[in-house]
């Protein structure tokens, strides 16, 4: 009698315990990711500094992303110019276009879109590369040589991302503001002086600093998630080998993109 009651209770609690398990899993995973990042970050400063590796990674994450950042920045600015103009013209305040474009780029679109572009370009590649190194035992090989794989593989990437992201964001912002100028002034005939005057007067250092902090936060999120997914490819339950790498790459891109947007919201609510 008592036993059946207990069983019934257990069945009733099944969904609850499933949620609990899931929550514990998520919390543990978060903890692991945080530890992974902190270790990797601290190891950047361990001597001797791995300058050539960091430069190599900046080349990969930053330099090679310039083209895609310029393109997306230009078109984002241009479309903002178009949309903003037709919205503002209804209120007779098209003169504010410069402010609208500059603020939305510097505060939001610059950091977010450049982070997403870098995820697609470099983040996925990072996850795949590290994942392959994991499954072909290259990471184990590093360990047997007493080379710390975190220091050797992850730290240069974290350093490079922390350097590259703000710079890419700045490039995105500047190109975007000029993109807005292209549609707003050249195409739709707002006085360029007013456009830039408005952009200048409306943007505060606070906005620029906010965008800068965001880009740093996104750098941390993207590089940590992508490296983490690759690094622990072998622990995935869904698939091993090449399939595991493909899962890792996919989840690296998806998770880091979503997290970028979530972190963006949280940071915006703090910065405003």
């Amino acid at each position: 009698m008592k036993k059946t009651e207990q069983n019934a209770l257990a069945t009733a609690l099944l969904p609850a315990s499933a949620i609990g398990r899931w929550a514990i899993f998520i919390i543990r995973e978060l903890g692991r990711i945080a530890i992974f990042f902190v270790k990797g970050f601290l190891l950047i400063f361990s001597l001797p500094l791995q300058m050539s590796k960091i430069i190599e990674q900046i080349y990969f994450i930053g330099t090679k992303s310039i083209l895609v950042i310029c393109l997306t920045g230009a078109f984002t600015g241009m479309v903002l110019g178009l949309q903003g103009y037709y919205t503002l013209v209804k209120f007779g305040s098209e003169g504010l276009l410069g402010a609208a474009v500059a603020l939305s780029l510097i505060r939001e679109l610059g950091p977010v879109l450049s982070a997403i572009m870098v995820i697609g370009r470099a983040g996925s590649a990072m996850a795949a590369e590290i994942g392959i190194m994991r499954i072909s035992e290259q990471i184990d090989a590093l360990e047997t040589m007493d080379i710390n794989p975190l220091r050797f593989l992850i730290s240069p990437r974290i350093a490079a991302a922390l350097i590259s992201f703000p710079l890419l964001t700045a490039i995105f912002d500047v190109i975007g503001i000029f993109g807005g100028y292209m549609t707003g002034s050249v195409l739709l005939g707002i006085d360029p002086a007013i456009y830039f005057y408005r952009a200048q007067t409306s943007v505060l250092m606070k906005d620029i600093a906010g965008g800068f902090y965001k880009s740093l936060a996104f750098a941390v999120v993207v590089v940590t998630i992508c490296c983490f997914q690759g690094y622990y490819t072998h622990m995935r339950a869904e698939g091993f080998g090449a399939k595991g790498v493909s899962f890792s790459t996919t989840s690296a891109v998806v998770i880091s993109s979503v997290l970028v947007l979530i972190v963006d919201y949280v940071m915006t609510s703090f910065l405003i």
Binding site: I58, G62, T63, L167, I208
Partner: peptide
């Protein structure tokens, strides 16, 4: 990488000095 850094720093400079 050097060119990238220079372009980036110019952009940061433009944003923070001219706009900010």
């Amino acid at each position: 990488v050097g060119i990238f850094m220079i372009i980036g720093i110019i952009c940061v400079g433009y944003l923070s000095i001219r706009l900010g």
